[in-house]
Design a protein around this nucleic acid. Sequence first.
DNA 1: GTTAGTAGTAACTTTTAGGTTACTACCTCA
DNA 2: TGAGGTAGTAACCTAAAAGTTACTACTAAC
Lengths: 133, 133
Amino acid sequence: MIGKNNQTVMYTELQCLRNLAAIEDALYVLGGKWKLRIVIALVSGYCRFNEIQRTIKGISARVLSNELKDLELNGLVERVVQANQKPVIVEYIATEYAQTLGDIIAALTDWGYEHKRKLTQHPEADVKRSVVI
Amino acid sequence: MIGKNNQTVMYTELQCLRNLAAIEDALYVLGGKWKLRIVIALVSGYCRFNEIQRTIKGISARVLSNELKDLELNGLVERVVQANQKPVIVEYIATEYAQTLGDIIAALTDWGYEHKRKLTQHPEADVKRSVVI
DNA sequence: GTTAGTAGTAACTTTTAGGTTACTACCTCA
DNA sequence: TGAGGTAGTAACCTAAAAGTTACTACTAAC
């Protein structure tokens, strides 16, 4: 009952289970607090370690380091060491494959904007309620 | 450098920060292991508590209960109590607002399918490597 | 000569998310 | 009459994620 551009689409039971599996795969790679934020920072052109850390407020060096390794393992980020420079400079580059995340990032970003707009316009709408028939 | 339908789009620094904020808002509501899975189950027509728990493998009653409350607070789920029935029957219904998640769910599902296809086709591609220049 | 930047890592602690078990109270079916 | 389904909750526990602090080793600027 949901689909692209908010068209109504029915899922059969089998499709529902397959979609659950697919979204599970996607969230396995992209889930967690930081992964998508890092990808956004990378595709926006930030590529140095400290630069990324400064851009993404709140992330620690340890976590950023681990997340970048994960993303590299999944083929979304390439680590480029410029050994000729002194001090040695490391760049993290979003791969071509990371470009395939465009739809996900755009959809999440759009929804986030709209959701915030909704919250600030009708704050009273978000009150917990149960409908009793 | 990324956007809808994988079109190349540049982000300015300001846009990058705004996108980071928007995706933060979206992930605040939708993040975590279960939220999107639950929404998928709901829009697929599963609406009873135990039914949802059976559909989403691995979720416990405690977690499902908490997640449904969160989703209700954010206006994505409506809790409908049919008090005339014995035993009392409770239905969880995806709200109209939940339909706005269509693009996100579709994008994540598509990407999950493709990513799995990629992994099974070229498993050797996912080897950690750093490029040293 | 001290402060800040380069890219991290190791060891440790805290936080949070999620899992487990047991329980309610009522109903239906075999 | 007890097994299973209805929708949960309370208390407790574990495991994973994330945060903190300190440190390397070298460079450049003030």
